[in-house]
């Protein structure tokens, strides 16, 4: 039995009321699906005096295609459950890699509860942090992210390297999504690629007084192939041990057409997802060209440096980042 710490619960019914509650109650935390924060509270990683539940904030649950600043976008409310995101016809048609990623999060039960906004703001995870308080005490008093002041992953390290473990985040970055925040000063829009920081204690630029209200994903303007690759030991429940999102924009609707733009993003390294750089040699090559797969996989293997912050040995995970990238590209090519 894991008891929650004592707290009060507020049940506002709209975004304005949530923002007002956040402003008036410093230290209050937001709870949507509860599948991330409640286990963390049961493990005593935080003891907020108040939780602000989004259970009654129905305005966060729309999914709609609309014109925004001269381009077509799909706005996905942050309160949509991951099940809904993975099954929504619009998301499946326009952003298949996002539907895949949302449908691979944890288990069906957790996807029925957990929200897209919660997955974007998922707290960073580490094998030395996400344990019971009793377990952490056995380490001699926790680590940088819990009660202590040492790091067990990087001995002597002063910067927390807990892993950004969201399945949807690498995909949202690869799709060029924007994150819309509501705060006391009004609305703020942050590109997903600039939302994360390399600090496991505070890995997003979201202020404590801000609420993630929606994700704005641009509709593709060219033919596209996209994929999300995830490796876990079990086929369900687990957080990713390897996580790669790929997006290839093509000149025409064929895997033999030249690639005009590509984005490859890896998760579960440190606190910040890694956008793979130096892929310019791939532009102009057909997606089906084996050289393309070799260049992309080599860049992923070179630039992804996993740490022992989640289960499995880092050198093995590093190899698997390459392997899963190669398989994902091969599947895209095979699908035509």
């Amino acid at each position: 039995m894991l008891r929650l710490p004592q707290f009060g619960v507020a049940l506002p019914s709209n975004v304005d009321a949530v923002v007002a509650l956040l402003r008036d109650n410093p230290g209050a935390r937001i709870v949507a699906g509860g599948t991330d924060i409640l286990p963390n509270l049961k493990h005593r990683l935080d003891e907020p005096g108040m939780l602000i539940s989004l259970a009654q904030v129905s305005e966060l649950r729309s999914i709609a295609k609309l014109a925004h600043e001269g381009r077509e976008v799909v706005e996905i409310g942050a309160g949509n459950t991951l099940t809904r995101v993975s099954e929504d016809p619009l998301v499946r048609e326009l952003f298949p890699s996002l539907a895949t990623a949302a449908g691979l999060v944890a288990s069906p039960l957790i996807r029925n509860m957990g929200t897209l906004g919660g997955n974007v703001n998922l707290d960073t995870r580490c094998r030395y942090v996400n344990q019971t308080k009793f377990w952490r005490e056995a380490l001699g008093g926790g680590c940088l992210k819990s009660e202590g002041n040492v790091c067990f992953v990087v001995p002597g390290g002063r910067n927390c390297v807990a892993a950004m473990s969201s399945d949807c985040v690498p995909v949202l970055i690869s799709l060029g999504a924007e994150i819309v925040l509501a705060g006391p000063e009004g609305q703020r829009v942050v590109p997903a690629a600039k939302y994360f920081k390399a600090d496991g204690l505070r890995h997003t630029v979201r202020d404590d007084a801000e609420l993630t209200t929606k994700l704005r994903v641009p509709v593709p303007t060219t033919p596209r192939r996209s994929a999300y690759a995830k490796w876990t030991v079990r086929k369900s429940i687990d957080f990713p041990l390897v996580s790669v999102a790929l997006r290839f924009d093509l000149k025409s609707d064929s895997v033999d057409a030249p690639v005009t733009e590509l984005v490859v993003v890896a998760g579960v390294l440190g606190a910040k997802p890694r956008v793979i750089a130096k892929l310019d040699d791939v532009i102009g090559k057909p997606l089906s060209d084996p050289a393309l797969s070799r260049i992309v996989c080599a860049a992923v293997g070179k630039q992804c440096k996993p740490l022992e912050n989640v289960p499995y040995e880092a050198p093995y995970r590093r190899r698997m980042f390459e392997v899963f990238t190669r398989r994902a590209i091969a599947e895209l090519v095979a699908a035509g």
Partner: peptide, 16 residues
């Protein structure tokens, strides 16, 4: 009608 985890649902959020 949706299966969910009662251990991670706040009782007050299930009202209504």
């Amino acid at each position: 009608g949706e299966p969910v985890l009662a251990c991670l649902t706040l009782a007050c959020a299930a009202a209504g």
